[in-house]
Design a protein around this nucleic acid. Structure first.
Lengths: 327, 327
DNA sequence: TCTCCCTGTGAGAGCGCTCTCAGCCAGCAT
DNA sequence: ATGCTGGCTGAGAGCGCTCTCACAGGGAGA
């Protein structure tokens, strides 16, 4: 009834445990006819090595953790970033024959759980996908001696390897597009100032405007649709003459679109709108949303590669402006 | 440098391994002052039990696998189903202090990998989230003696426990809504006939029409946007007089919307449209899409509960019609 | 023929933990 | 005093595997 052990296979094949182990692990120093005999025994018994026993001696787990250090709601709401990362990490891990353990570490209790789990030898390394650059988790894990890579530049001043997307460049390209299409008063609805994405996209906006000598018009949101609506409303009050807005997330852009419609402004005729993220809903917005697309899947792959091949250096990935009708 | 072991803690606290183990695992038969001493030693050394060693003797892994038996593209494209399931499973697993191991088993190589991984004692049970009812994976795992629950009624005739969503009822409610708002020629763009969701939603459509004595007008799609566009185009050719369409997925509905627009039909004035899934893009469609929402997170929770408490019986969850402007 | 090496195999020592079982020392009844 | 509990603790076996090391056997070189 219970699963066969190495011992059982060895007995059946008439060899020692060591030899079976050699065959199972693909050692070359085994005579051909013995190898065949062992493999048949493995087959017949349906033998699968006990991973716990193996880990115990090898000190490896052959799996990596992918930790989302965010409330789960955020992770899987409308943001395609996480989905892309998951796919990328999975792809790369598969290729290296590693398993991916997905963990949600939203609560502080979650933090602790993740720390316990990853230090218990269950995984060989951890990818922390956190949007808050000041998240203490990565550093805490590193202190424990666990290999860690971060998605997004850590704000904590730690020197952990990371993969980030060129938020500054992405925002710059969006604003430049607005400038090039003749817009003169370009506002932004920025993201929260405690997130790298929020900070960097605002920097990009400022850079692009500074280069062209125009002044900035700024509202602060939190990446949600509602905050986009409010931000836009306020922006319209502050400067009724604005003719373009760059929202630091598509959800905020969608909210802005709604606020503009309510205020009777036509998009893109009166006001051009650009978002960020290229969420699935973006092409279906009214009008279809021009936005900045991020290579999220590639990000996942790079994260896994960085974890699997330590020593390679941090990576910054480029973005792509997807021009639709809103700008 | 290396992680402290039970032995080290025992030495520091001046007791035996067994006693430390008792304290760590919360046994009551330990004198108060010793318990305190041990806990201090654990604290000071930063001791975390080695899970491999523990699993080896307890034969438990304290984690469960959540397997997506689909190509990864599908899993994380625009379908909120999987995201909801992940959240639900995670929530419930957390509560039971179990870890969730996420696995993508798209390829046949993936199938094999999952089988190896789960039989190697790495997990205590498996949740298979597959949209193809005839997926051989769940049965294969069950044969191996691993506890399995399926998301979606298995089409293989196996008697595995499952959690499903009332696809038939959901489709019926959509079509009834169309009927009640006075529509007379109601078409459907059905899903693929090898998926439970495809089959059941078509059944629901037929049921509702049969009850009211109307005939069915059917096109077959594959849940994608493009197939929705094509399906709608064909439907319009087959029966130019149709005044409503029920698409078995939102993505197909979105495609249908586009086809209708191109054909110069107004929605909902000329043709009413209802989708299925309530994807994030649905509220932003033009016009906002009326659709059938599924309790995906609850589904995840039920899946986990079923796995964690064997013996409870399979569950079918109700859907909810979300009325927006397209119907 | 003897030694040397080289290939292939087996014996055995743990990896870090849990859990059974025996043992110890009160404290109480006899 | 002696025996008997009954509550705590420690000794030790063993979970299933890997990996080092010793060793057997045979071909080549001396």
């Amino acid at each position: 009834m219970s699963r066969p052990t190495l011992e059982k296979v060895a007995a059946r094949a008439g060899v020692s445990r060591a030899t079976v182990s050699r065959v199972v692990n693909g050692s070359t120093t085994v005579a051909e006819h013995i190898r065949v005999a062992v493999q048949r025994a493995v087959e017949e018994l349906g033998y699968v090595p006990n991973q716990a026993a193996r880990s115990l001696v090898t000190q490896r787990a052959d799996s990596i953790a992918l930790v989302f250090s965010e409330p789960p709601v955020r992770v899987f709401s409308d943001d395609p970033t996480f989905a892309g990362i998951i796919r990328g990490v999975s792809t790369e891990a598969d290729a290296a024959d590693k398993q991916v353990v997905l963990m949600l570490a939203g609560s502080s209790r979650g933090h602790e759980r993740v720390e316990r789990y990853t230090t218990s030898g269950h995984v060989d390394g951890v990818i922390v996908a956190s949007m808050h650059g000041a998240d203490p988790l990565p550093a805490a894990l590193a202190r424990r001696g666990i290999p860690v890579v971060c998605s997004g530049r850590p704000l904590t001043g730690s020197s952990l390897p990371y993969v980030d997307i060129d938020n500054v460049g992405g925002a710059e390209s969006a604003v430049r597009h607005l400038l090039e299409s003749g817009r003169r008063r370009i506002a932004t609805i920025a993201g929260p100032p405690d997130m790298v994405a929020g900070i960097d996209r605002l920097t990009g906006y400022r850079n692009a405007l500074r280069d062209s000598g125009r002044r900035s018009i700024i509202a602060i949101g939190d990446f949600t649709r509602d905050s986009g609506f409010e931000g836009m409303t306020q922006l319209l009050e502050d400067d009724p003459g604005l003719d373009a807005v760059f929202a630091a997330s598509d959800m905020m852009a969608l909210g802005a679109l709604q606020a503009l419609r309510r205020a009777g402004r036509r998009v893109p005729d009166d006001v051009a709108v650009i978002g960020y993220d290229d969420v699935p809903a973006a092409p279906f917005a009214d009008p279809p949303l021009t936005t900045v697309r991020q290579p999220t899947m590639r990000m996942g792959r790079e994260l896994a590669r960085l974890l699997l091949h330590p020593g390679e250096s941090s990576v910054i990935l480029p973005t792509e402006l997807v021009v639709r009708e809103s700008a």
